[in-house]
Nucleic acid binder design. Structure first.
Lengths: 244, 244
DNA sequence: CGTGTGTTTGACTACAGTCAATGGCGGTGG
DNA sequence: CCACCGCCATTGACTGTAGTCAAACACACG
């Protein structure tokens, strides 16, 4: 299940400048270097379960994961799509509030919870970075609240694709006007994120394609010829605006 | 518009043990004492506008407010109900991401943004408390995401009432089994929070009343004879469980 | 007592959900 | 190498929940 990967030095880490360690200087990095461990898990692995203790807090180095809650009758809602540099777990709480499941093979940079809590206390640049990241996530969660509370199925899908595209654009991969997204999720996972059924999600993909707003070279790829036009469909007229 | 209220010492402040200052010691409180100012505003006052600069960061001392976003076509979604000890604004960002409007007369404890950002940097107990509060708000926002994405109108209303009741219970006012909520919101504001129309919200209030789950002594009061039973309606079977 | 705002109720509509069948793609085994 | 199986996605037909439009009601205020 768990493979032992080669552990890169923090200085060469692909998420060095985006993760919880982003603001650390060389000295602080040296401390992290000693405390961290890596874990590589295959797609489908559960990384945390709602209500269960979580002994390690981790950053995603490569791969992606979902954070979701499932109601007793099986209804599921994704509350976050975790991509490289995103953080799993919460300092100061021993149990996870959500289920976290690897969507692809995932590499984690882990810290034992107590160790990490000490790091937060003693390493100012970790604490400030964690606060900034948490504030950003809070804004993103609230923005998604607007999508789920007030937008139509078509707008939800458009909003999701635009936010994925913007996230990709921010972490390098600058595209001119057209860009192709590698979807990390199945239609079911997309539906769980959008608060829709698989069927409605699929119909909306078809609808956006028929309207020329997206192309679907394969099931897991979506090409966006004109991001601005798609953003308009998401009710996001102020360019670069409300959708984080 | 703005009244000059009597300014209580931090030691006597009603939100002393819940607000962003909760963890501060006497020395830190003395610093806050010098930096803070109070402002009292009547119901309906705009405290922040999405996209507009926000010069003061504040805690709500008394009263309540809504935090919401309005789409261009008028659809509105509340992303937070702000009660005493809740915080308005985000350090490190000069513009507000949402509209904030006073629901009742509100007393604010304010700090100039730059001043507060310095306080966060130089006062460890402010920084840690702010992180804890932000993490709590993040969980609450994600929990609400589940409500909006997957719950029916009836469940949304029940979930909202239960969360209000639990919030009240936490800040004193321990009720045995039955308790009466003073609703700080109009039906319209409730609908905006629940992601529903006024009409559907009103129908669900009627439905819960007809089923004996709530009583409505007046428009702005809701009596809950049995909180556990109402919580069941919200799909929250694990007692004290998922709803923050 | 009348006016106005906010709420409730009613009748009808529409959007997304449900149930079911078909389609496409990849992997495995003959 | 091809065929079959199984999974996931798509499409179709119908249903149901919440939205829309409109009228009645209730309470607060002048």
């Amino acid at each position: 299940m768990t493979m032992q990967p080669h552990i890169p030095a923090c200085g060469n880490c692909p998420i060095r400048h985006n993760a919880v360690c982003a603001e650390c200087d060389a000295d602080e990095l040296a401390v992290l270097e000693r405390a961290k461990s890596y874990r590589q898990v295959p797609a489908g692995t559960s990384l945390a379960s709602a209500g269960e203790p979580l002994h390690y807090l981790s950053s995603i180095v490569t791969g992606s994961a979902t954070m979701s809650r499932t109601l007793e009758d099986g209804r599921r809602q994704m509350v976050g799509l975790l991509l490289p540099s995103d953080f799993i777990g919460r300092p100061g709480r021993s149990a996870s509030a959500y289920d976290v499941v690897a969507l692809s093979d995932v590499t984690l940079c882990r810290f034992e919870r107590r160790t990490f809590e000490r790091l937060v206390r003693e390493t100012p640049h970790i604490a400030t970075r964690l606060l900034t990241m948490t504030l950003d996530e809070l804004d993103a969660a609230r923005d998604w609240t607007v999508v789920l509370g007030r937008m139509t199925a078509r707008e939800r899908l458009a909003a999701f694709l635009v936010s994925l595209a913007r996230r990709r654009a921010r972490s390098g991969a600058g595209a001119g006007r057209a860009l192709t997204l590698q979807l990390p999720l199945s239609r079911e996972a997309m539906a769980d994120h959008l608060g829709l059924t698989i069927e409605t999600t699929s119909r909306q993909v078809t609808a956006l394609r028929k309207d020329g707003l997206i192309e679907t070279p394969s099931l897991r790829e979506i090409r966006i010829p004109d991001l601005e036009r798609l953003a308009l469909e998401a009710g996001d007229d102020a360019d670069g605006g409300i959708l984080s």
